[in-house]
Nucleic acid binder design. Sequence first.
DNA 1: TTATCTGCAAATAATTTGCAGTCTT
DNA 2: AAGACTGCAAATTATTTGCAGATAA
Lengths: 133, 133
Amino acid sequence: MTPPRHAVLDALSERGEHLTAEEVFKKASRRCPNIGLATVYRTLELLTGLGLVSKFDTGDDKARYEFADPAGEKGHHHHLVCSGCGKIVDYKDFIGEEMELLRKAEQGLSKKYGFKIKSHIIQFFGLCPACRR
Amino acid sequence: MTPPRHAVLDALSERGEHLTAEEVFKKASRRCPNIGLATVYRTLELLTGLGLVSKFDTGDDKARYEFADPAGEKGHHHHLVCSGCGKIVDYKDFIGEEMELLRKAEQGLSKKYGFKIKSHIIQFFGLCPACRR
DNA sequence: TTATCTGCAAATAATTTGCAGTCTT
DNA sequence: AAGACTGCAAATTATTTGCAGATAA
């Protein structure tokens, strides 16, 4: 655990953040002024590989990062993305039903297509209240 | 409707295809030998905007294109992606349950967060039979 | 020390854009 | 002829990589 790595973790530590690598870089730069962008990318990839951070894309071709769900359903959520302004809402509603569907789907797809399912993506896109008019 | 555009449509016409822009370009080049890659991108964007084609990403940072669902549930499907070799399986299983969940979710999210839902993504990732071992 | 980590700059790779020529109507 | 469409080449942009020096254990 080195200073740059600590700075990256720190940048992501606020809950509900969905930062791009550039944004992580800016925040991390405050704590570690001469950190390099490449190091940020390398660290984010490392953390993602360890399962501590999850990486996703909302359609603007910039990867976004957030702390991974703390083991299981507890913090499980999905994203609702505004196509207008890019706003991202974390929602946990319907998680029960979703988990049920996911369980069924993973089992069924596994059996039918022989895949060993590792992960999934569920995202909704639409217009937020401000962008609707 | 110009020759290059026709060539792009033609390239996508085979069912079950999930082509990258580069692949569409190669296929389209057969029918229209001096088509340019930029035109392919422009045409794909046009068709996507018209709702005739849908664009998605399986995680390799290359956009993929396929004919859009013909109105509603009829051809509705989702993707099962192999993280090993990139293979993409279209599946329609659990579509009933998924539609039910989607309907509920769209209504609920709309009410709770004020979003007007336009679309969604559901994808599963895992290892295909060949990549499992 | 000894391998790992870092910053910088240069390299990639997908996609976009400027522009001048070409087609369509 | 006026506007839309095209190909080419150059520009963009997020991300990756090579490398020599710095750092952690």
